[in-house]
Design a binder for these strands. Sequence first.
DNA 1: AGTAGGACCTGGTGGC
DNA 2: TGCCACCAGGTCCTAC
Length: 269
Amino acid sequence: MPELPEVETVRLQLNRALVGQRLVSLDLFQTGREQPPGRAFVKALLNRELLAIERRAKILIWKFSDDLTMLAHLKMTGRFIISDAKPVRSKHDRMLFNFETVNVTWSDVRKFGYVKLVDTKSLGRELSAYGPEPLGVDPLILADRLRAPKTRVLKAALLNQEVIAGIGNIYADEACYRAGLRPTRRLGSLSTEKRLVLAREIQNVLRESLALRGTSSNDYVDAEGERGDFVKMLRVYGRAGEACLICKNPIKKIVAVQRGTHYCPKCQV
DNA sequence: AGTAGGACCTGGTGGC
DNA sequence: TGCCACCAGGTCCTAC
């Protein structure tokens, strides 16, 4: 599942390949459920120069000339794939962006993902609800975000993009394990010290995963079609029934906040 | 305010 | 081999 490390990996690759190029043409195939791009979408983007691709939470922000921005969310299975030659179209491809010397295919098996255009000047408003980016900030800031509301389930807070941006199901479970906390704990039961430990572990797991180009547990591949190597480093996610790396007891899988949730019943309290 | 549950979507898997 | 129920989950929406 693309979470912060995966989306950031894709962003870096797209940036490297595309920035400074003009969009020469755009082929539309089938369209997504949300904000289906049409003729107006194509017309608006055509001949614009891509100035930069930024990221906020799990959203890719494609900044084009003339204050035009394309927001893209990969959700579960969205992919941007870079290719030099015109790629062979496959079943789930939805759009093909033809830049001056490179092509990018937008495809999405489950159709949860979206791309949409917004005015660059309204970006601040568009993205205002998100909590802080977890990397590159003082962990005290993250720890503080995990303080209230006290009744909230820890995992629900971690998945809530308004609390901290960019964490999804995999890294929520991994951070809880590293911090020795059950995902079902109430925020109000965490000491100041524990919240800081958790904040640091959130940063650690995201940083380590980013260094390995993210996690490919199911569908994810980066913009160069490669799988992320962090999948080998996962300690609880996807390891139900396997031995805990610390105590050797089996990792348990439950459903919490409607999500598959993995933890060690002995090491996490 | 917070949580639960449904909806969206389709490929892959496990059971029979 | 074929069929089918079920599972994966980011985010939004509704109901409590």
